[in-house]
Simulated assay, not measured.
Amino acid sequence: MNNRIDSHQHFWKFDPIRDSWIDDSMQKIQRDFLPEDLLPLLQQNQFSGCVAVQASQSEEETHFLVDLASKNDFIKGIVGWVDLRDKNIKERLAHFSSEKAIKGFRHVVQGEADDFMFREDFRNGISSLKQFNYTYDILIFHRQLTAAVDLVKHFPYQPFVIDHIAKPDIKSDDIISWKKGIQEIAKYENVSCKISGMVTEAHWNNWKPSDLKPYLDVIFENFPSNKLMFGSDWPVLNVASDYSEVVETLEEYIAQLSTEDQNKIWFENAGSFYNL
């Protein structure tokens, strides 16, 4: 199976000021990560391509990813950034619509106030995405799931995907409120979920697959197999693991599923969600 798609990874030329979220506890990733660093890892793990997701909040970031995609055909799509709160949002989306590599947009909502997704200007931006066939990646902490449920309910025709299973606090084993939120949001037909970013929510230095299992169980109990996709969250995963280990952890967990369901999770769902 060499056609897997990594639905979630990042590239950057490390800038300590812009990338201040990469603090000294994350020294392993305080450097550049570019396509030539990722390609061998994709090849070793039977991936034919990836979706590059924004890591900083600027249109420059979106142009940077477009440029990388134009030079590396294994970058099958981009989730960029645009200021969804801009009153001229339709013009900005029209501007980007000529770039076929851009499949959708994301905002780092986990860094915003918990009521951010209720903002009228933000929702105005969300309401403009569908016209251009853009997806939206929901990046939140689990406590923001209530607001996310309200958002997806208000835009039933907008395709959404939850990044990093909505960042449950795996370290403290606090599953209950997160699980309620997942049960609720999974009811909406327009919502998919990325199985990504879990190892960095666990204990970085001593997590084991059994720590992730209860969270994976909740995801698989609530989302049908046609709504789930694998994402590595490379290079962020390097603070707690390595690329192959993250892939193997999911391989083992889904080994009991049918080949058809496994194919959906490894490549088909990412392909259809992002129109790759």
Rank of each mutant, 00 (worst) to 15 (best):
T259N: 15
E245V: 06
E260P: 00
W266L: 11
A186H: 11
P224E: 13
P224N: 10
Q183V: 11
K179V: 06
V218C: 01
S48Y: 03
I138A: 04
W207E: 01
V79L: 02
V79A: 02
R18W: 09
N238D: 11
D217H: 05
N205R: 12
Y253A: 06
V109Y: 08
E91F: 10
D121K: 12
F141H: 14
Q44W: 07
I29P: 03
E260S: 14
D174Q: 15
V191Y: 00
D19Y: 13
D73Q: 13
V108L: 15
D150A: 14
W12H: 07
D163C: 02
A55T: 14
L216S: 12
L65K: 07
P214G: 12
W207D: 05
N206Q: 02
L139C: 12
A55P: 00
W207K: 07
Y188R: 02
E99C: 07
S241M: 04
L237K: 05
Q57C: 00
I138V: 13
G197Y: 08
D86P: 00
D67S: 13
N206V: 01
A101S: 09
W266N: 05
F105C: 01
P224L: 10
A255M: 03
F132H: 06
L151G: 09
E260I: 12
K171Q: 14
D6H: 08
N72E: 07
N133I: 00
A270D: 06
D73M: 13
L276T: 08
S56P: 02
V82D: 06
I22G: 13
V246M: 03
S98I: 01
E221Y: 00
K90C: 00
D37Q: 11
L228I: 15
R119L: 05
Q183D: 03
D121S: 14
K13Q: 09
S272D: 10
S210R: 05
S232I: 04
F220S: 07
Q131K: 08
D217I: 02
F11I: 09
H203C: 02
L84G: 09
P209T: 00
N222C: 03
E201A: 05
P214Y: 11
V79I: 15
K71C: 01
V82A: 14
E112N: 10
V82H: 11
I75W: 06
A69Y: 01
W204E: 05
E112F: 00
K100F: 06
L216R: 10
K179A: 07
T135V: 04
D23N: 15
V51R: 04
W81Y: 13
I219G: 02
I126F: 00
L212W: 03
N3Q: 15
N3A: 12
S56G: 15
H142F: 05
K187W: 02
K180H: 10
H63A: 02
N133T: 03
W204V: 09
I140Q: 01
Q110G: 03
S241L: 02
M1Q: 14
Y157D: 15
K208N: 03
R92W: 07
I182F: 06
F267A: 14
S20W: 13
I219V: 14
I22Y: 13
D114T: 14
D73K: 14
G271H: 08
D67H: 01
D261R: 13
